[in-house]
């Protein structure tokens, strides 16, 4: 590589790193505030980012100031129930839409696509009233069930199923396979990459969900962790250090999952946009 090329490349990395700092910086500031000892100022000109020494006191304080373990467990339950339900309901619906011809197929498909044009804020009130009428206000079911149907999931899986070679399906059918068996033993395994993508996106969206649980839940013992953080922020007298530490704890699970699965996410976005 020639010298100008090397310089150009170095400049490119400096630019990429500077931009990365813009996106990661606020989290680093939060992390630093959550680890600073009581004697070190959180805010100062110039910023004093490195904790001397890093302490876990504030993480422990946040952990006990609100029922943190309960909130984390609630979030795990919300994710653990919603995501599998969401995947199976989407796959079941996508299967006939992709591979069978029947009366009303287009109608069903367009009805489901139309849900994308019902803005969340508009649906908030009537959906809350419906959930209340069904006796599901302030329950786990009330938080979970409205989030199970997703036009995105059905759309993506329909594309995937339609892309499975016809011969594979026809061969299974001539072998006398039941449709449900084909669905379970042929289509689901063939769609595994798409299912992984839906799983990750589902995890992220349920873990971060805020406005719907805020509306449905009265009892703070059922809060997911994002609501718990808003609650912690709202308690007067919460130290800026322990709020920072608590917020960092709340995002660790989703950041770890993202780091592990990032390749799938970025590939998946590509598939979704093309589809």
């Amino acid at each position: 590589m020639s010298l100008p090329m090397k310089l150009r490349r170095a400049g490119m990395y400096i630019l990429l790193t500077a931009i990365a700092l813009v996106f990661v910086g606020p989290f680093l500031i939060l992390l630093s505030a959550g680890l600073k000892p009581a004697g070190q100022a959180v805010f100062s000109f110039p910023p004093d980012i490195i904790p001397r020494p890093p302490v876990l006191d504030w993480a422990i304080e946040a952990w006990t100031a609100i029922p943190f373990p309960t909130y984390l467990l609630n979030s795990v339950i919300y994710v653990g129930v919603t995501v599998p339900l969401y995947i199976i309901v989407s796959a079941l619906c996508a299967y006939p839409l992709a591979l069978m011809s029947f009366r009303g197929r287009n109608l069903i498909f367009f009805a489901i696509l139309s849900t994308m044009f019902l803005p969340g804020e508009v649906m908030l009130i009537p959906r809350f009233l419906v959930v209340s009428q069904l006796g599901m206000a302030d329950t786990f079911a009330g938080v979970i069930l409205p989030g199970v149907l997703s036009a995105f999931g059905i759309f993506l899986l329909r594309q995937t199923f339609a892309g499975v070679p016809r011969e594979v399906v026809d061969a299974a059918r001539t072998d006398g396979c039941h449709e449900l068996r084909i669905f379970w033993h042929v289509m689901l395994p063939a769609a595994r990459p798409t299912l992984a993508i839906l799983g990750i996106f589902g995890f992220i969206s349920v873990w971060n969900s805020f406005i719907w649980p805020l509306v449905v839940l009265k009892d703070s013992a059922k809060y997911p962790v994002a609501l718990g953080i808003a609650y912690l922020a709202g308690i007067t007298g919460t130290d800026v250090r322990s709020l920072a530490a608590g917020t960092i704890i709340s995002i660790i699970p989703v950041v770890v999952i993202f780091m592990i699965m990032q390749r799938h996410i970025l590939e998946g976005m590509r598939g979704a946009v093309k589809g």
Partner: peptide
């Protein structure tokens, strides 16, 4: 790929956490 991932990081974190972080900024 690492840079793409870092730029994408705020997308996967909750708006609540992002809001708190920016209050510090």
């Amino acid at each position: 790929r690492t840079f793409r991932m870092l730029y994408y990081l705020p997308v996967v974190t909750s708006m609540v956490a992002v809001g708190v972080a920016w209050e510090y900024v």
